[in-house]
């Protein structure tokens, strides 16, 4: 189990709506053995999304959930082929945090929190948004996780 690896960077993804994005995250989480129940993951992501639009400005959305369907905490980085209409906001970078339901004082969750902290850093956001270089994206996220 790893909180982040290169496989979790998904570039040039053919999705064009928030609905497709959430469905894609659930499917990928299932394929990558992050989720043990694809549909439950999708449902729980939607619960969060309805409560609070996860677009955070600067064309970034951070759909996330704490769900019993998730096996271990991870971050997925997704870049859609085209700009997504995220409930009225344009989005070209998706950073998705997936966490098990019960999990306190977990080192991996603290690592994930460091990425959230980086998301107020303009330079970090701009570089991540503009890059399509999988190695660079991987290094940036690993750097943030271990900061």
């Amino acid at each position: 189990m790893k909180t982040f690896k290169k496989e979790y960077v998904l570039l040039n993804v053919d999705i064009s709506t928030r609905e497709e994005a959430i469905a894609f995250i659930a499917t990928k989480a299932s394929e990558l053995d992050i989720s043990n129940d694809r549909d439950k993951t999708e449902l729980d992501l939607w619960d969060r999304e309805r409560e609070y639009n996860t677009a955070i400005g600067d064309m970034i959305a951070i759909p996330h959930t704490k769900s019993p369907s998730i096996n271990f905490p991870v971050v997925l980085i997704i870049k859609p082929k085209d700009i997504i209409d995220w409930y009225g906001e344009n989005v070209n970078l998706i950073i998705s945090f997936l966490s098990p339901k019960k999990n306190t004082n977990n080192i991996h969750l603290t690592m994930l929190s460091k990425i959230s902290r980086k998301l107020v850093n303009e330079e970090f956001k701009t570089t991540l948004s503009e890059s399509n270089d999988i190695d660079l994206i991987y290094e940036m996220i690993m750097g943030a996780l271990n900061s």
């Binding site: 704490k66 966490s99 929190s113 959230s116 902290r117 998301l119 107020v120 850093n121």
Partner: peptide, 17 residues
């Protein structure tokens, strides 16, 4: 925040800076 995964830490960092 409710999930404590993202917004809590973004707010903390923004305020700290």
């Amino acid at each position: 925040c409710t999930m404590g995964l993202a917004h809590t830490f973004m707010a903390a960092e923004a305020l700290e800076q």
